[in-house]
Design a protein around this nucleic acid. Structure first.
Lengths: 233, 233
DNA sequence: TTGATTTATACATACGTATGAATTATAATG
DNA sequence: CATTATAATTCATACGTATGTATAAATCAA
C-alpha cells in the first residue's frame, strides 16, 4: 500500500528515475524558497513527475526534505574528503614547521572557497545557509557531519600555530574569524555580484580572475596573521 | 472604506497600538520563518490584534513586509550613523597616519560586531540574512541604504591602506574578506553557540568575555594584515 | 501475470483577503 | 460637563483558492 519499496534495480530509460528527480528538484526549490514556502506541486512540476510520486517515494514533504539534506551531506563529504584527510594525516605525522602549518591553513581555506563558490553547488549552499538561520531537525546531522568537522579542523590548525588548546574558547573563536573570511562569499554571494556590477543569477559565479584574487588575498592575510608580514614562506 | 488613515494623534492607553504591534510581530516571525512560511493569522496572534487589522493598516501581507524592512533600515541607520559619520569626517580631513587608519578600521569592525551580536537586534538580523539568500523586491532598498554604505566605507579604509582605487575590484574583494570576519558571527550565530556548548535560543548572546575576545582577535588580525605584526600602534 | 510505478481525482484543512456590523475614541454642541 | 455626531478601529465571519496527503484505477516492466 503506502509502503514504498526501493524497487528491484529498475533503471528508467533515458531520464533519471522519479525518485532522483524529486530529490534534485527538492534541493533546488527548498534552497531557493525554504521548506514551508515550497509546495509539493511545485516540486513535482519541477521534477516533471506526478504529484503522488512524493508520498509514494518519500511519504511526506518533510521526509523528502530530510533526504535532500542527506544527499547534500553525501555530496559535501565527497568534496571535502580529500583535503580533510590530507590535512589530518599531515597533522598526525609529527614535526611540521610553522610555515608548513600556515601553508596547510591557506590551502584548506582556498579549497573551501573553491568548493563553496562553484556555481554547481548553489542549490546545496542555499539550503545550508537556511539551516544556519532557521535550523530544522536535520540541523543536528549537518552540524555533526559537516560544520563541526570542518570548523574543528581549522581550530586544530590554529591550535598548532598559537599553542592554544584545540577546543579552547579562544581557539574556536580564532578559527571562526578565519572561516568567516570565506563564508562571506557564501552568504554575500548576491551582494558581491551586485557590488561588482555583475549580473546576478544562478548561473553566475565569480570569474576565475576574481577567484584567484580572493585566494591570493586570503593567503596573504593568513600569512600576515600567523606569520608576520615580514616573511614570505 | 479600505483607505487607512493615520489617525489624529490617538494614543492607546498602556499597550502600543495595533499598527506598531503588527510591525514588531511581523519582523520577528518573518525573520524566524521567512515571508511565505508566515501566515497572517500567525502575525495577528503574535501581535494580539485581530486578523483584519492587517488589511486595515497595511493592505496586504507583502506591504506589511515592506514596512518591516523600512523599520529595520531606520533602526540600522540609527545604530550605524554615529560611527559612520565619525569615520567619514576623519577620512575627509586630510593627513592620517597609517596607524590612525588601521585604528579606524579596527574600531569600525568592532562596532559592527557589537551591533550585530547584540541579542535585541536578532529579529532584524534574521530578516537581513534571509534577504541575502533570497532577495525580495525590498532587497534594493537594503542594498542601497545599508549594505552598500557600510561595505564601501570599509573599502574606503582599505583603499587608504593599500593605495588601491576605492572602487576597484581588488579593493572591494579585500574589504569583503575583512567584513566576512564579522559576518561569520551573524550567519554562524546558532552554530557558534552550539560549538561553544552554550544554550541556543533567542535570548542568548555571546558573553561579554567572549565578545571582548573576538574584538581583540579582530583587532590583532587587522593590525597584522595591514601593519605587520612586528609593530603595535 | 505479477508487482512496481504512474496517473487522475478527491478530501479536509489552512491560506490571504474581504465585508459589514459592533465598538471605541475624538470632536462638536448645548 | 453631559450629550450627541462622526470618524477610527476592532471584530466575527465568509469566500474562493491552494495546500498536503490519500485513494484507487491505469499503465508499465519483468
Amino acid at each position: 500500500m503506502k509502503e514504498k519499496k526501493k524497487a528491484s534495480v529498475r533503471v528508467k530509460s533515458g531520464q533519471p528515475d522519479a525518485r532522483a528527480r524529486l530529490l534534485q528538484a527538492g534541493m533546488e526549490v527548498f534552497g531557493d524558497f525554504g521548506f514551508a514556502a515550497v509546495t509539493t506541486r511545485q516540486i513535482a512540476a519541477k521534477a516533471e513527475v506526478n504529484l503522488a510520486s512524493i508520498p509514494y517515494y518519500f511519504g511526506t514533504k518533510e521526509q523528502l526534505y530530510n533526504e535532500c539534506i542527506a544527499e547534500i551531506l553525501s555530496f559535501a563529504n565527497n568534496r571535502f574528503e580529500g583535503i580533510r584527510k590530507n590535512i589530518e594525516s599531515k597533522l598526525a605525522a609529527a614535526e611540521l614547521s610553522r610555515g608548513e602549518v600556515v601553508a596547510l591553513l591557506e590551502q584548506f581555506l582556498q579549497t573551501i572557497f573553491d568548493i563553496i563558490t562553484n556555481k554547481d553547488v548553489l542549490p546545496y549552499t542555499a539550503l545550508i545557509l537556511r539551516e544556519h538561520i532557521n535550523p530544522s531537525p536535520a540541523y543536528e546531522l549537518l552540524y555533526d557531519r559537516l560544520f563541526f568537522p570542518l570548523h574543528s579542523l581549522i581550530a586544530a590548525l590554529v591550535a598548532r600555530l598559537t599553542g592554544l588548546e584545540k577546543e579552547s574558547e579562544e581557539c574556536i573563536l580564532r578559527a571562526h574569524v578565519l572561516l568567516g573570511q570565506i563564508m562571506g562569499f557564501l552568504l554575500g554571494r548576491n551582494f558581491l555580484l551586485k557590488r561588482l556590477g555583475m549580473e546576478q543569477g544562478k548561473n553566475v559565479q565569480l570569474s576565475s580572475k576574481e577567484a584567484v584574487y580572493v585566494k591570493t588575498i586570503i593567503s596573504e592575510y593568513v600569512r600576515n596573521i600567523f606569520y608576520g608580514n615580514g616573511s614570505e614562506d
